[in-house]
């Protein structure tokens, strides 16, 4: 079981790094979707022998939402907003990856320092969650279009979810669904916002939003 879990977690980090290097918005969204699927699978393999029905249900909802619905919405936003497909981030891909590595090192270090009292089989989850959170924040800060920021936000949420998973096994289902609902609404609202920004300004570059201030 740990081998499976480790492989999944490694793949999770790889998708985050994949987002740091991907040069096209399409690849970026797909990578986010892949990460969504993995984060959905995570509760099935972390720490317990046989997943309960409740866990399976949440996992299915997670995969469906993050792996299918969100990418669909984002691709539609991408199509309708007629954004440039090439990403042109504020911080280039190479320095971004170096940041990712630093984030990874920092996460392992923080994890060692904090010393969470958790089951040793889930030990890798915490540093991976930290890394994902930091990369999510980095993506939000350094990527140019509103669309890519939405995905950064999703990455951040994935990280927080993984972190929660390591700390508490059994989250009340209502709470989990509530969180999912929040994210869903957020993506939905952002999708609408992007659509409107685009209609108003013919582009969704956030670095030109600063012209709006008084």
């Amino acid at each position: 079981m740990t081998l499976l879990q480790d492989t999944l977690l490694v793949a999770l980090i790889l998708t985050s790094f994949g987002m740091l290097v991907s040069g096209r918005l399409g690849a970026y969204i797909r990578m986010g979707a892949l990460q969504g699927v993995m984060i959905g699978l995570l509760p099935l393999v972390v720490g317990r022998a046989t997943p309960t029905l409740h866990v399976v249900f949440v996992a299915a909802a997670m995969i469906g939402l993050k792996g299918l619905v969100f990418p669909y919405l984002l691709f539609r936003a991408l199509r309708e907003s007629d954004t440039k497909r090439e990403m042109n981030p504020f911080v280039g891909h190479v320095p971004s990856v170096f940041f990712g590595i630093l984030a990874l090192l920092g996460s392992f270090w923080m994890d060692a320092r904090l010393g969470f009292p958790i089951h040793s089989s889930a030990a890798l989850v915490i540093p991976v969650a930290f890394t994902t959170i930091m990369i999510g924040l980095f993506l939000i800060v350094t990527r140019r279009t509103a669309l890519s920021q939405v995905i950064g936000f999703l990455v951040l949420e994935n990280g927080i979810y993984a972190f929660g998973l390591a700390i508490v096994y059994e989250v009340p289902i209502l709470l989990e669904l509530g969180v999912l609902m929040d994210v869903f609404v957020a993506v939905f609202v952002m999708g609408i916002a992007i659509y409107h920004i685009n209609r108003e300004f013919d582009h969704i570059d956030i670095d030109r939003l600063n012209t709006l201030r008084g």
Partner: peptide, 23 residues
């Protein structure tokens, strides 16, 4: 785009290193 491929290699090694230390 080649540098991206190569920094990916750096990232892979770095991730592998931290995982090994952990394992």
């Amino acid at each position: 785009k080649v540098p991206r491929l190569l920094v990916t290699a750096i990232a892979l090694s770095g991730i592998a290193f931290m995982l090994i230390v952990r394992f």
